[in-house]
Amino acid sequence: MTTILVTGGTGTLGRHVTARLRDAGHEVRVLSRSAQPYAVDLRKGGPALDRAVADVDVIVHCASTQTGGDEKAAANLIAAARRANVAHLVYISIVGVDVVPFGYYKSKLAVEKLVESSGLDWTVLRTTQFHDLVARVLGAAAKLPVLLLPAGIDDQPIEVAEVADRLAELAQLPPAGRVADMGGPEVRSFADLARTYLKATGKRRAVVGVPLGGKTMRAFRAGGHLSPEQAVGKGTFEEYLARG
Rank of each mutant, 00 (worst) to 15 (best):
E27T: 14
R195Q: 08
F237I: 06
L49F: 00
E186F: 11
L49K: 00
I59G: 03
E116P: 09
T18Q: 08
D192E: 14
A142S: 08
A191K: 06
F220D: 03
T2N: 10
V146R: 01
F130K: 01
R51D: 15
D192T: 15
E27F: 08
R188K: 11
H61E: 08
L170F: 09
G45T: 00
R204W: 15
M182F: 15
A140E: 12
L147S: 01
E238I: 05
G214C: 06
L212R: 03
G8V: 04
D50S: 15
A24F: 04
G177I: 05
V207M: 07
E169R: 15
D23T: 15
A142T: 02
L42I: 01
D165M: 10
D41G: 03
R43L: 03
R188C: 08
K234N: 13
L212M: 07
D132C: 11
K199A: 15
A135T: 02
G244P: 11
V53G: 05
R243I: 13
A231W: 03
P157F: 00
L120M: 03
T216L: 09
R204N: 15
E229K: 13
L226F: 07
D165N: 12
A84Q: 05
D50H: 15
A200D: 11
V17K: 07
F190M: 13
R166V: 14
A39K: 02
A206Y: 11
T2V: 11
E159I: 08
A24S: 09
V6M: 05
V208S: 08
G69K: 06
V115I: 12
V28D: 13
I92W: 07
G139K: 06
A200Y: 12
